[in-house]
Design a protein around this nucleic acid. Structure first.
Lengths: 210, 210, 210, 210
DNA sequence: CATGAATGAGTCTTCATTCAT
DNA sequence: AATGAATGAAGACTCATTCAT
């Protein structure tokens, strides 16, 4: 029995992993159910049996990926004392999530580009909650006289946007220097670039009073 | 003759406009040639006659949209005297372009999500040139002792990302409060939010020394 | 399992049969995949699933039809003792093949008319082998002082050509007398015409010494 | 006026020449009206204006090509005295026609393969007349005790077929030795092969008594 | 649960033909 | 006569989804 259940879980795992990857690579419209089945080493009909149609599959992937992002972030923020630490916690927590789910940026970008039509409610709430968290951090810091007044939504979108573009623009940038030759300079990933701390520095400088 | 040429130009215009809109809405894979023809009020075969296949059409749209973005931006920056003014010129020029081409953000987001496979070389160069411009502005300001040291690529990606997400997240945000009710608060477009100056403030604060 | 396999085989069989017929009737360009599917009483997508695109289908048909023509002919010739018998064996074997595959003549004619662009290598070899066989038979007979010197390629092409035109010209000839009335005489298939022995007589008379 | 008429004639000439070539190369179904117009350096609509639709164009080409083949052949045969000379006249006249119209063999082959559906009546008559001529020659020779009894239709089809295959099989044969290497031997056009006299020899040997 | 075959509704693309000028 | 744009009806090929075993 347990063996059977394991097998089932394993099948579903493989399906979801393959789907996430493919949806990240080519988007919902570009994804082919056949290809997903093939990469998951699973019979195509099994996808329908275990999960449902292509859209259900996509939803499942979104749920998995976004999952409890907000609550983890909330925990991290709650664990910090000062506004500065809270802001850092937010930034790191966010980046961690993206590191753990490399498929997240392209999927979210396409989701936004689509107008979020396919965002399951749960995920939408998750995203909204995150903005709420940022809002709380920013407001707290402002009231304590540590932060300047900043629109949290804008700040957050710059962070999400910056990370998303950074994570996804790699191929395009690489393609560019292949096109152009080595001296491409500024566009190339600057050596040893620590994106995480760069973004942290920028945001903190923008937010901290004085 | 001129009548004929006019008709031709108009046909092509209608095709490109409809295409840009649809590609922006649903992406390359999601776009239907039939739908493009329909919305352009043009016989489908005319698309192939005047422009070529779907991919050629997409390329044409990209070229039109990205067109001379970099050179316009370069002009604007060159017209400014101080590093501060140059930075402002960059930020404004960029935002203007996006205002003029509302289709640009979703298209670029999807293009990045795709790994830039379909970016025509010209467009890739355009994008790279823009990063180069930012690099020049940042370096200049730093050498003149006005800016702190900032990685230009990161700064630019935060700007692009911020604008992109802001421009595209509208529906998702709206969907969210419909879901949740009016009190959604922070996620809602804060009243009278002037995104342009918000982002400018954040970037300038992050970049200016002291 | 076997039931499934049977069903599969039968589907493929129906596809190939219908294809051969249609390709013979209207040629590759004239053939419609829809029509093939319809006549094969098979869902169109099954053609792509089991065999591939139209060209692959065509190749498959050629392979089936030409198959092992040469080796069968070689066997028949090898089984004969004298040059005369060998020549007869060639002629009969050839005609048999055409009788078994009524689709062969039109397909080969069109293939030649096309410059053999689509001849799969295997088939080209098959055809060449046959010419080789004729060459051997003719040379053998000549060296044994039984045949006159004859160019084997020409002889073979007259046989192939004669049979091809005979097999395919039926409708045109019939059409002609319908047009003209019964007294058409010579063009009509002369009553009781035994084409096989007619051609054999002509060739043997042309080849045998004295 | 005459200048205008010349221009018209020239246009029609170019159309028909291009058509003949293309129909010969790729057949009726494979031919593209655009391509014909392009090769004829003529506006596509002019084809419809001067000649008519694709089928009319094809018919026109057939008429031109087959034209008065029979009557020329009849003249040539009438000019010969003995049955032997008449037979030679037939064979030569036939080959001449094919030399003059290199497009004839592939077109006729495809026409036969199609079941002669598109043969205009005039052309059908022309072809029938030719068989009639052969019939007359053979019968005459037989009655004069010079020829053996031979079925004229078969004889003719072997001639037509031999010439057709010889004329069209060039590419396929060449393709074959490229595939196989130089030693291809018998399939290769035997050096200095004089196809015309080879075929003449074969037929005469087959037909002449003793 | 698992498999491979089957289905039907698209989706892109081509092409003969016609129209307006 | 001549031109280039326009049209509509196919035609090849794909793909999400379902079925039978």
């Amino acid at each position: 029995m347990t063996a059977k259940e394991n097998r089932k879980k394993e099948t579903i795992r493989r399906i979801l992993d393959a789907s996430a990857k493919i949806f990240a690579e080519v988007g919902f419209e570009g994804a082919r159910v056949d290809e997903i089945a093939k990469r998951a080493r699973v019979n195509k009909a099994m996808i329908y049996y275990h999960i449902g149609d292509k859209k259900a599959l996509y939803t499942e992937v979104l749920l998995e990926i976004f999952g409890d992002a907000a609550s983890r972030m909330a925990d991290n923020i709650a664990g910090a004392d000062t506004p500065l630490e809270k802001m850092k916690a937010y930034l790191r927590s966010f980046t961690e999530t993206l590191l753990k789910h490399p498929h997240l940026p392209p999927i979210m970008m396409r989701e936004m580009a689509d107008g979020g039509q396919n965002l399951p409610e749960v995920v939408a709430k998750e995203l909204a909650t995150i903005v709420g968290l940022v809002h709380a951090v920013v407001t707290d810091g402002y009231q304590k006289g540590i932060f300047v007044k900043v629109e949290p939504l804008v700040l957050h979108l710059m962070v999400v946007g910056g990370v998303s573009y950074f994570k996804t623009s790699g191929p395009a940038r690489r393609k560019y220097y292949e096109m152009i030759g080595e001296t491409a300079g500024s566009i190339k990933d600057p050596k040893g670039l620590d994106f995480k701390s760069e973004i942290e520095n920028i945001i903190l400088r923008a937010v901290l009073k004085q």
